[in-house]
Simulated scan of single mutants.
Amino acid sequence: MFDWIALPFFNVIFFLGIGLLATAFWIWMLIDCITKETDRSNERLIWIIVIVFTHLLGAILYFILRKNKRNR
């Protein structure tokens, strides 16, 4: 039978894991932007500000809009 007392523990572990993965992705995109983005017309600075202030949303936007385009 399922133990209802253990359910909150698994929820904490699950959401903690998601949070750690999201933070690791955010750091990865921030480092990628700092090291590989061209400094043409302050694009690097603008992307750094977007990534820092919007956290995961900014990292996802950078990944979709810039990183994939730069890799092509």
Rank of each mutant, 00 (worst) to 15 (best):
R66A: 00
R44A: 02
F9V: 12
L61C: 12
L65C: 08
H55A: 06
R66E: 01
F15K: 08
A59R: 01
N68I: 11
H55L: 12
V52E: 12
I13K: 05
T54Q: 07
D32A: 07
F2V: 14
A24F: 05
I18W: 12
T23G: 06
D3G: 11
G58S: 10
D39L: 08
R44M: 03
I5P: 11
R40N: 10
T54H: 05
I34T: 14
G58I: 09
I18M: 11
V12P: 09
S41F: 10
K36Q: 08
L56I: 08
N71D: 14
R70A: 04
N42V: 11
G58P: 10
W28D: 04
R72T: 03
F15L: 06
D3E: 14
W28T: 06
R66I: 01
W4N: 10
R70N: 07
I64K: 06
L20N: 09
I64R: 03
G17A: 01
T23E: 07
A6L: 13
N42T: 13
I60G: 06
V12W: 15
K69E: 01
E37K: 12
F2T: 13
R72A: 10
N68G: 04
F2W: 15
M1Y: 15
F53Y: 12
G58M: 07
I18P: 00
C33G: 00
F63C: 06
L45G: 12
N42M: 12
I34Q: 15
T54C: 10
L20V: 01
I5H: 14
S41L: 10
W26G: 00
W47M: 05
I64V: 08
T54M: 10
K67S: 03
L56E: 00
L45P: 10
L65R: 04
Y62Q: 05
V52S: 15
T38R: 08
S41V: 02
W26Q: 01
L61I: 10
T38C: 04
E37C: 11
A6H: 04
T35W: 13
R40K: 04
G17L: 00
G58R: 06
A6N: 04
R72E: 04
A22S: 01
E43P: 04
F9N: 03
I60E: 03
D39Q: 13
F10N: 06
W26M: 02
I31W: 13
L20K: 08
K69A: 00
F14G: 01
K36C: 04
N42L: 13
L56N: 00
W26S: 00
A24E: 01
I5E: 15
